[in-house]
Nucleic acid binder design. Sequence first.
DNA 1: ACGATATGAATGAATG
DNA 2: CATTCATTCATATCGT
Lengths: 212, 212
Amino acid sequence: MEHQQQQNQQAANDIQDGSGGGSGKGSFLCRQSSTRWTPTTDQIRILKDLYYNNGVRSPSADQIQRISARLRQYGKIEGKNVFYWFQNHKARERQKKRFNTSTTELHHHVPMQRPTSLTLANNKFPTNINSGYSPSSSSSTGVLTVGQIGNYGYGSITMEKSFRDCSISACGSSTASANESLSHNFGWVGIDPAYSFFEPKRFIDGIHEEGQ
Amino acid sequence: MEHQQQQNQQAANDIQDGSGGGSGKGSFLCRQSSTRWTPTTDQIRILKDLYYNNGVRSPSADQIQRISARLRQYGKIEGKNVFYWFQNHKARERQKKRFNTSTTELHHHVPMQRPTSLTLANNKFPTNINSGYSPSSSSSTGVLTVGQIGNYGYGSITMEKSFRDCSISACGSSTASANESLSHNFGWVGIDPAYSFFEPKRFIDGIHEEGQ
DNA sequence: ACGATATGAATGAATG
DNA sequence: CATTCATTCATATCGT
């Protein structure tokens, strides 16, 4: 994300122990050969391309097959990886948005349906996530228009992070009003502290065993 | 926290690294200090308060907004910081507990990178967060905090989208092989407008193999 | 300075 | 589609 961290660890493909027998995760050097898919840079690039430049959000099973087949040349990959990738990418995008926007007026769905494309003339649906994105219903509507997507080049997808700003507001008051005591005025968090009752699950710490 | 280590260094400061000429690590011109959020003591205190005294473990997006807004008084913070904080705190607590639980001679296979048993029994409960305020029985002084948020400097977070993507896709053609992304027609992705929906379950299920 | 540890951030995989 | 868990990377800090 902000700054790719483990993206460089697997620049080459063939990360995960492609060796059939194995599970030789113990191998030094190649860490991560464990169970989880480690996308290569090429794979990620293509996935993002599909996501941002082609509006692919929830590819159909069929598309997933094709995509994974295509990505397989850059490294080991399975259909589910593609599936999860899109799911996660989309979910996190939305989630982040949710963190930082007010909830007071949350309109759940803006019934904005992306044109079934094929209009190729004025077909200019949001090319980047910043612009209005089509909420729901983007699921595999025939988005692609095999003909031409136009929009080559990543001119717009560069949302980057654009560091908030350099202003470092002090917000002094180190101890000024940092006195939220607690147990009483947490209305601002949304929990209801007014009653002494509490959720057994939450408080009884040693019990809720999340085996999972 | 576990045993506060940097708790004192940024007591009031205006968020880490005033840098400027600091050299050292920052040394980036305007880059408001490091890339990563460094919670202030007040922020941590409140977070722990919520965690231990109010049972907040996985705040909803809604709560995250409120919390981060509230914490912003004490320093720069974004929703994702709160989100990650709770995620991490919960996860690590669980991790530690895991060790503790299997106190039996589990010596074999401890893939953990850091047992970190050092601060184990120190602070896993509401006992003392650090500051000297009394948690549960805080005589409910009219704290009022919620009512008026100072909100000094930045009224608007304006944190753009703050997304990933910067990593590779944009212009860095690392391996040069995957060049079809931009100048390609994605016909290979297939456009199956007809049946669009796709059962994840079915797909995932049949996919769960592969492992080799 | 280094090495170890604590912890913020990211993301694959699941589950509801 | 939302949430959560597990893992892992990255970096700030501290101890020696």
